[in-house]
Design a protein around this nucleic acid. Structure first.
Lengths: 199, 199, 199, 199
DNA sequence: TATGAATGAGCTTTCATTCAT
DNA sequence: AATGAATGAAAGCTCATTCAT
């Protein structure tokens, strides 16, 4: 088998295992059984269990990051449409690769300082991006006056939880369109009726 | 030492350890060292590492659940104020016991099927409560027409993420008041300016 | 079993194994089988295979070092008799504990930098001791004019090899007395007849 | 590349590795990297790691053995000069090929029964040769009355240790001449002054 | 002759749990 | 109720060797 293919096969098998059982409960035996290779072969491609986990994480983090395009005020596409496109791409990225998404959303903290740092930095960057975007929106009066960091945190949290419900708990009611619409509707328009009184 | 006190001391020690290092990185040795007891003594009070983890989880879940009061339309307190009071109690409950909160928010899934189920059911119940509340609100026209389950999921996600940023990453900008105001502001009022154009 | 006794038993078993098969060929399984304990018990007393090996080494090195008494010119025992007593004590120390002696003489270099250093420093100190003793002897005209370091090296080598032949290859002809007499005879008196012509 | 040359190159690379890191710490990877060949190629020339080690050992043992010429009483060269020539050739043989010498002097016993036997037999033969030579010398009254086997052991030990100090620990004070003179001086003449009293 | 991906037995070490005291 | 020495299953990882190309 070609080396690239085999490596890919190991990654697929490992991703499946990690998604299903979590990092700790997944043993090298699980991965190699799932990939149909010998013990030593695994270590030909990855130098440790952490190594492959980190690889899967980094790979998916990069993929997710690539979906987010900076919103431009110059073009002929409205900022709202650009934002919707961002959300759509993100949702699609997660739905297309639910296994690594499951890993990244579930295996939060406590695995290992290095991986914790990676996740922390990933979410940190994401929040910062949104924070800046919101701050810009506030200046332009297209976003209400709120603490942009807090709002960014809320957005991330909302997105994460909705995706977890979808891919981990198989919440079938959440179709792609329902998710995108719901997230934008609630986060942009708010839950309050007219006039806002309470829940 | 009275049996109840000793048990309590073990729980406190274990909670501290789990919060600091996570479930897997915490060994029985860590717990008994921290509690100042002998190895065997631990097993007099809890039948396994999972057992005490589950206890801590259940205890905190119950505590959190107790904070949420059903919103009454009959009394003289407005629904909005009742909702705000709910949010305040929840934020306080987390801030007062950051250690178990850290555990519940971080050590999400993958530890063990039984614990996963517990968490799933906890969040499930929480979401259901909010979902029903929202559905009622929609009927009463004080909440906009949205998928109540999706909106409930968004609310939970937003709350979780904000609290994680606060207690895990020590985001000091998020004061109690800022958190409560921010959550209500964004989720009730939405981020959109007037008129809503986009971010 | 008392902790001290158990530790001692493990040391005895391990020493036996190391002496018989060498460091690398001895597995933890060999040691615990020989000691009649469980795998985990070994790690209760020593933190690694290296740890116990180092312990055995250090212990024996200390024991050997203790046998050598500085030769005094003041007392009523002649320097020659003091030297003979030193040699006797050394030979006895080795014969009484052939297993660790075997380890120290055979498992020379290449195990691990730390252990190499220990051995190097042990032999270094030994050679230095003898070197100084010889230098003193030369000043006092009771030792011939030779490079004291080279002579010390020769003495050590001779001693080591004789002991190896005795304990490793079971050269039964080398009795305690024969060894002591032989070493002193050859090294002090030389092999040359009268007059020295050659071999 | 010609087969003989390639084999030779592998031997050179392996000798270097073994000398530097010892048998166990040297992996097949080390050897093939150093020789610049592929994994499988190694096994075309040697059937195992032991095999090449044994080859290096045997080769050097033979080389060393070739340096020793039987001392003749008939010729016009004195026995003493013949002996000195033997020592000189031995020292030169070691100094010219320090790497295999390092291997043979350091990696004593415990690698593998077969290799142990080889070394044992090498030293055994060497000792026997010297033993016979000494016995003859004793009969001829040119060597003092000593146990010839013990004396031979002492000679070998002295030689080994001096060479180890020279090539392993780089004892620069030991020049070729110093080594030869020192060994002969001490072993033939003894360390004792005139009259012999002690150290 | 040459390659290097693949193999798998076997290693050291960890740690939740037990149980005799 | 309390102790802590003892247990042993199971983990991650290494590396000499094989074999299809």
């Amino acid at each position: 088998m070609k080396a690239g293919k085999r490596r890919e096969a190991i990654v697929v098998a490992a991703t499946e295992c990690f998604a299903e059982k979590g990092y700790h409960a997944t043993s090298i035996s699980d991965i190699i059984d799932s990939a149909g290779i010998a013990r030593g072969t695994f270590y030909l491609y990855f130098k440790s269990k952490h190594d492959i986990f980190r690889f899967i994480l980094d790979d998916f983090i990069k993929h997710i990051g690539d979906q987010i395009k900076r919103i431009s005020l110059a073009g002929r596409v409205s900022p709202a449409d650009q934002m919707r496109a961002n959300v759509e791409r993100l949702v699609d990225a997660v739905l297309e690769r639910p296994a690594p998404a499951k890993i990244i959303f579930n295996e939060a903290v406590g695995l290992n300082p290095e991986i914790d740092d990676r996740l922390r930095s990933f979410y940190g960057k994401l929040i910062l991006m949104i924070e800046k975007s919101l701050a810009r929106g506030i200046t332009l009066k297209i976003v209400r006056e709120v603490d942009p960091r807090l709002a960014a945190t809320i957005i991330i949290g909302a997105f994460k939880e909705v995706m977890i419900q979808k891919i981990v708990f198989k919440q079938s009611r959440f179709s792609r369109k329902a998710i995108v619409d719901g997230l934008i509707n609630v986060l942009v328009g708010g839950l309050g009726g007219r006039p806002v009184i309470g829940i």
